[in-house]
Amino acid sequence: MRVVLASARRKTARARVIVRDGKGRIFINGTPLEVLEPEVVRLKIMEPIVLAGDLVKTIDIFAEAKGGGIIGQASAIRTAIARAILEWSGNEELKKIYLQYDRRLLVEDPRQTEPKKPHGRSARAKRQKSYR
């Protein structure tokens, strides 16, 4: 039995994915993908699975995400799933399909929110100075 581990990050979310031989079952944080809510998150996570086609019917995918918000977690899971499927199959054609569809499927987005600074309500905004 072959097992492939993959991980990815997005903002402050971290995702780990395990891919192994199976019947096409997909679990996200212990929940089957078919019943995952909201629908936007489900559709985002399904992108690399749909692009992989029939290959996914022979494997089981178990994904876990921690930190961040639901969209950040979905993006991290999506990237980790794409990497795991690619490592599992070793298919160069699939890699081309992923990169042509969206480069973020395989390459992490390094952007992080800038920390808040003193004397302001956010990272860049400061209290206005008045001379009169």
Results as ranks from 00 to 15, higher is better:
Glu87Trp: 03
Asp109Gln: 00
Ile85Asp: 05
Ala84His: 05
Gly53Asp: 02
Gln100Asp: 15
Leu106Met: 05
Leu105Glu: 00
Tyr98Pro: 02
Thr58Val: 11
Lys116Ile: 13
Ile81Cys: 03
Asp60Met: 05
Arg42Val: 06
Gln73Phe: 07
Gly68Pro: 07
Thr79Ile: 09
Asp102Pro: 02
Arg42Leu: 03
Arg83Leu: 12
Leu94His: 06
Leu51Asp: 06
Lys66Gln: 13
Glu87Val: 07
Glu108Met: 01
Glu37Lys: 15
Gly68Met: 05
Gly69Phe: 08
Gln73Arg: 11
Glu64Lys: 14
Gly69Ile: 10
Leu105Gly: 03
Ala52Lys: 00
Gln112Lys: 14
Leu105Met: 06
Gln100Ser: 15
Ser89Arg: 03
Pro38Met: 09
Asp54Ile: 11
Ile85Pro: 00
Pro48Met: 03
Ala74Val: 04
Lys57Asn: 14
Asp102Tyr: 01
Gln100Asn: 15
Glu47Cys: 02
Glu93His: 10
Ile45Ala: 05
Pro115Ser: 11
Ala82Lys: 02
Ala63Glu: 09
Leu36Thr: 05
Glu37Pro: 04
Val40Pro: 02
Glu39Pro: 09
Glu87Gly: 01
Ser89Met: 07
Leu51Phe: 02
Ser75Arg: 11
Tyr101Trp: 13
Ile70Gly: 01
Arg104Asp: 14
Asn91Tyr: 02
Asp109Thr: 05
Gly53Phe: 00
Ala63Trp: 08
Ile61Asn: 06
Ala74Tyr: 01
Gln112Ser: 13
Ile71His: 09
Lys66His: 14
Gln73Pro: 06
Tyr101Arg: 12
Tyr101Ser: 10
Ser89Tyr: 05
Glu47Tyr: 07
Lys66Arg: 15
Ile81Met: 01
Leu94Met: 10
Arg103Glu: 14
Arg111Ser: 10
Arg104Ala: 14
Val50Ala: 14
Leu94Asn: 03
Glu64Phe: 13
Asp60Glu: 06
Glu93Tyr: 10
Gln100Ile: 10
Asn91Met: 00
Thr79Met: 15
Ala76Asp: 01
Leu106His: 04
Phe62Ala: 12
Ile70Gln: 14
Arg103Ile: 10
Glu39Thr: 11
Ala84Leu: 00
Arg103Thr: 12
Ile70Trp: 12
Lys117Val: 09
Pro48Cys: 07
Arg83Cys: 04
His119Lys: 14
Ile61Val: 15
Glu92Ser: 12
Arg104Gly: 12
Gly67Glu: 08
Pro38Thr: 05
Ile81Glu: 00
Asn91Gln: 07
Ile49Met: 05
Lys117Trp: 12
Gln100Met: 13
Lys116His: 11
Gly67Trp: 04
Gly72Val: 04
Val41Asp: 09
Leu106Ala: 01
Leu105Ile: 00
Ala74Met: 06
Glu93Thr: 11
Leu55Arg: 14
Pro118Val: 11
Asp60Arg: 07
Ala74Glu: 03
Ala82Gln: 04
Gln112Val: 12
Arg83Val: 00
Ala82Cys: 10
Leu43Met: 13
Pro48Trp: 09
Ile71Val: 15
Leu51Lys: 07
Glu87Cys: 02
